[in-house]
């Protein structure tokens, strides 16, 4: 059992979510930066999709009632624990994790996985629909599952910060926008807004003008969709995005760059490019 002493600004349990239920109105959810969740799990010998803790801005304190192997991946912390190595925490031990040095989301995997009750096959907190466990609070007790497999990785050097450039594929509704809107999206610099969350990264920057008014008939939305509400200010959809929506999507962020989007902090600057390379 792990006792949450302080969760930091926002922390949830996340695995790989609930894919396959979008037609029933269920968001996929799951780790916003999935490769980091997978890496943290591999470091403690877990199957990659076990549930872990997703911290936002770090700054959490956790007490381990039982001894455990843990590992962190994603955004590095200024203090408390290193990323990319299995760490042994003795029974009664406490992890005092500092704030993030860069990036937004840090994954703490525990050997055996976080074993809260699954809902629709996943232990993820879906911040949009409310499915899954409540966000962590001081006093939350998290059960840990039985370990399987062996720890076979000693060290995975954590990647440094990647440039805040999101590669996009135009469409599916780029024809709803004025000529030059794609150029505006890819030519300017956007700033990440304070009201960004697991649903999406809200951006402020060059306005993306539409040539058609009104709403689309509701249609399926993919993770990474750059949706443009009437304000003309784009939103990049993350894990908890609604499965359907009525605002046009001008472009979609490539899958390889979703972790970059998921690590953007409010105030960060980000650019888009339609070129496939870097």
């Amino acid at each position: 059992m792990i006792e949450v002493l302080t969760p930091g600004p926002y922390a949830t349990v996340q695995d790989l979510g609930r894919p396959g239920l979008a037609h029933l109105g269920v968001p996929c959810s799951g780790a916003a930066d999935a490769p980091s969740l997978r890496l943290a799990n591999r470091l403690v010998g877990n199957p990659e999709g076990l549930a872990a803790i997703e911290l936002t801005f770090g700054a959490a304190r956790l007490r381990f009632l039982d001894a455990a192997w843990v590992a962190l991946a994603g955004a590095p912390l200024v203090s408390g624990a290193d990323l990319g190595v299995p760490i042994w925490v003795p029974a009664g031990g406490e992890l005092r994790l500092g704030p993030t040095a860069w990036g937004l989301r840090t994954y703490l995997a525990v050997r055996g996985g976080i074993a809260v009750e699954p809902v629709l096959g996943s232990r993820s907190t879906d911040s949009l629909s409310g499915l899954g466990p409540e966000p962590l609070r001081a006093g939350t007790l998290l059960p840990v599952g039985s370990p399987s497999g062996v720890i076979s990785v000693d060290l995975a050097p954590p990647p440094g910060p990647r440039p805040a450039v999101l590669r996009v594929l135009p469409g599916p509704r780029d024809d709803w926008f004025a000529p030059g809107a794609m150029a505006a999206l890819c030519g300017g610099t956007y700033t990440v807004s304070q009201d960004s969350n697991r649903v999406g990264v809200r951006l402020r920057g060059p306005e993306l003008a539409r040539v058609r008014e009104g709403e689309l008939p509701s249609e399926g939305m993919v993770t990474g969709a750059v949706q443009v509400p009437p304000s003309g200010q784009p939103i990049v959809f993350l894990a908890d995005h609604p499965p359907t929506g009525g605002y046009p999507v001008i472009a979609v962020v490539r899958g390889a760059d979703l972790p970059v989007a998921a690590q953007l902090r409010p105030g960060d600057e980000v650019r888009f490019t339609a070129r496939p390379g870097r």
């Binding site: 894919p19 979008a22 037609h23 008939p217 509701s218 249609e219 399926g220 939305m221 993919v222 359907t244």
Partner: peptide, 13 residues
């Protein structure tokens, strides 16, 4: 993985 029908579309992922 996903088949999402809408009023005038079907999204296939």
């Amino acid at each position: 993985v996903e088949i999402v029908p809408g009023p005038e579309t079907v999204l296939v992922v």
